[in-house]
């Protein structure tokens, strides 16, 4: 399953709820304000790294760049563009959006 998170983890608990409900082997894609979770050295980085041990975490590059944080991304998070977003959606049978 592909999970998307579009809210800042500092403002809403969407990311944590997503982590709690994403099965091993899932793909988790951070988009819009959700990409703030990808920043290295934040209070959420450890939780993200922990999730990365069982799931693959992606972040939308355009959203990272827009927010000035593209240079601060946790190692191992995979950056995708809009085409990559579409590919991810096609590769998975289901998509769950954590709003």
């Amino acid at each position: 399953m592909l999970h998307t998170v579009n809210k800042s983890p500092f403002e809403k608990n969407s990311l944590e709820t997503c982590f709690a409900h994403a099965k091993e082997g899932s793909a988790i894609l951070l988009i819009e304000d959700g990409v703030y979770a990808a920043i290295q050295g934040s209070v959420f980085s450890d939780k993200v790294k922990q999730a990365m041990s069982t799931c693959t975490v992606y972040a939308l590059e355009g959203d990272l760049k827009a927010r000035g944080v593209a240079g601060k991304v946790i190692d191992g998070i995979q950056l995708v563009d809009y085409a990559g977003f579409v590919d991810l959606a096609c590769q998975h049978d289901k998509v769950t959006a954590w709003l």
Partner: peptide, 9 residues
């Protein structure tokens, strides 16, 4: 934050 570039969004 520095370095914001919104061309992609």
């Amino acid at each position: 934050t520095k370095g914001q570039d919104t061309a992609g969004i």
